[in-house]
Structure formats: C-alpha cells, structure tokens
Amino acid sequence: MSSQRPGNTFRNMSQQPRPKASNASTPRDSKTERTAGQSRSSRGTGAQKYAGSSAWDRTRRFMRERPMLERVYRICLKAFLWLFFGSIGYVIVLKYVPVWVTPLVVSRWIDTIGTNESSHVYKKWRSYDVISKEAALAVVASEDQAFPTHWGFDFNEIQDAIKENEKRERPRGASTISQQVAKNVFLWNGRSYVRKGLEVYFTVLIELVWGKKRILEVYLNVAETGPMTFGMEAASQRYYGHSAETLSRNEAARMAAVLPNPRLFSISNPSNYIQRRTRQIARQMRYLGGQRYIRNL
C-alpha cells in the first residue's frame, strides 16, 4: 500500500481563491449613462444641433422636422413662381395684343353700379401710327418730358418732388408715363408700399420688353380722359367729334391738360385753369422742337 495519503479535497477546495463578485449593475448603469448622455445632447440648442453645417443645410433640416411649415413653404414658393413667370408672360403678350380692359376701367364701371351715372364705357383702341403725333407730343410735354431718355424713372423729378412736398399741403407726384402705364394696366388704385413695389417691378418689365413706342401707344389708349372715357380716340370722338388722327396741337394740349384729374376737369367745358394750362403745354410742345422730339422712340 502506498504510504501517501489522499489529500484533503474539501480543504484544498476551500483554500482556492474565491471568484470576485461581479458587479451586475455596472453594464446597466453604463448603458443608462450613455442613454442619458444622448438624451442630453439631443436636447441641445439649435446652434449646437446644427453646428458645422451651412445656413442652407440648417434651414432645410429645420423645415424637414416641421412638415406643416414645409408644406406651407412649398405652396407659397409655387404660387410665387406662377405669379412671377405668369406676369412676364402677360407682359410679353400685351406687347403685341391691344389692351382692351384694365383694372381702372373695371373699377370705374363698378363705381357706377347703384348710381344714376351711365355705365357705358367709351373706349376705342387705335395704333400709335394712326393717332396724331400732336397727342403723343402733348402728353410727353405735359406729363414726362424726359420720357425718351429715361429708363422708367425720372430721379431728378423725384428728388424735386420730395423737396417740394416738404412745404406743400397736397403732395405732388413724380410718376413717369411708364409708371402710369404700369399702374393702369396691371395694378389697382390706392396708395401702399406693396402696390408701389409692384409698380416698380412692372415699370422695369415693360421698359425692357415693350420699349418706348409701345409704352406711349398703350398710354394713349388707356389713359382716363373723362368720365367713363379712356384713350385719345374715344375722347376725341366724344368731345371733338372727329378721330384722334386729326387732332390739332391745341386740341391735344387741352386733352393733356385734364389728365391729372379727368373726372374733375373737362375737355368740352374747360375752366380758366385748364385754358391756362393748355397754353402752357402748347408752348412746351414748341420748345421741345415739335414732333421731332418723339420721332425716334
């Protein structure tokens, strides 16, 4: 028999080092901390959230996170593009097509509803070549003597009007013929920054697309020349009994004299002021050199 005794298994096992107790909560706590950190970072400010990206990227990301706002933005953008390109198309069409109806004509016709005034509109389109050049010269001499040379705006006249209006009770306008055409053909009556801004837009547009001759042709056909009367041809037939093709210088000057307020002043029954104003316009027509002044529009 072997003299070697078996070892004390229980004792040996008891002497083995005990495994360290694992910290079961550590992984869970680490995960919780990571989640909390992510949550804190997601609640950061907008500047921290979008840091490092361009302004356009930040705007697009901001819109994507708000579907309703993005939908409204897309609708407004589409409406703007339709109006923008539609206005350009309309201006191009009117370069070749007579302007039969304007917002001013519609407004005057609506004003007669429910009143004793006649609702008949006196309006007849005539091409620039048919209308007497005395009429064209008269409105240039009266309304806008720099018309052949400016690009839609007479800035010298605007500055003079601003200085004069500081002392005048009734403000004096400085609108050019181009601005008046833009207002009468495309816009509504009234005074507001929105309408004035649109007037500037359409003035630039017709100067670029139409040119001077077409602008003056439209003005001679759409300008209000009396109660429910629009254009030189309609006024000439109604008040003088003949076509605008045969207007004399004095007749054309009197028609131009009433243009600032054709509902107050009368062509057929001119006041002393209109008669004096007619003589002034006729003198200006001579000083400008007669019809040669508008020959090369």
Rank of each mutant, 00 (worst) to 15 (best):
G290I: 07
Q284E: 12
H120Y: 12
M285L: 08
A223K: 04
R71M: 06
G211N: 10
Q159A: 15
C76H: 01
A252D: 08
V93M: 12
R60P: 00
G197Q: 10
F186L: 03
Y201G: 00
R277N: 09
N23Y: 03
P262C: 04
N261T: 03
N156A: 14
G152Q: 05
Y50V: 04
I88R: 08
H120Q: 13
V140F: 11
Y240M: 13
V121H: 05
G289M: 12
S3H: 07
T176H: 03
K163Q: 14
F230H: 06
Y201P: 00
S22W: 09
Q291C: 01
N8L: 14
S25G: 11
R28W: 05
I75K: 05
N269W: 00
S54A: 00
A24Y: 10
T225F: 09
S132R: 06
M232Q: 05
S175R: 15
R191F: 01
A282I: 07
Y122H: 15
A253L: 06
V140I: 15
T229Q: 02
V99P: 13
G226S: 04
K163P: 03
L264D: 00
V106I: 15
L77A: 14
A55K: 14
P260H: 01
S175M: 13
D29Q: 13
I131Q: 04
R249L: 13
I113H: 00
W109E: 03
R126T: 11
A79I: 11
N8V: 06
A161R: 12
K95A: 11
L259M: 14
K196T: 07
R5I: 13
Y96L: 14
M68C: 00
S22C: 01
S236G: 14
V101P: 00
I88F: 15
S2R: 14
G211R: 09
S39M: 12
H150I: 04
L94G: 04
S243H: 11
R295P: 00
V258K: 03
R168T: 04
L216D: 03
F202V: 01
R168D: 11
G114R: 06
K183H: 06
S192H: 05
T246L: 07
E157P: 00
L77G: 10
R11D: 06
L137C: 05
R126F: 05
S3D: 10
M63L: 15
D57Q: 15
S41A: 14
A234V: 10
A141P: 12
Q179P: 02
A257I: 10
N23F: 05
V91D: 01
A235E: 01
Y96Q: 11
V101C: 06
V72I: 15
K78I: 13
E143C: 02
N261H: 07
A282F: 03
F153R: 15
F202P: 01
A138S: 08
F186C: 03
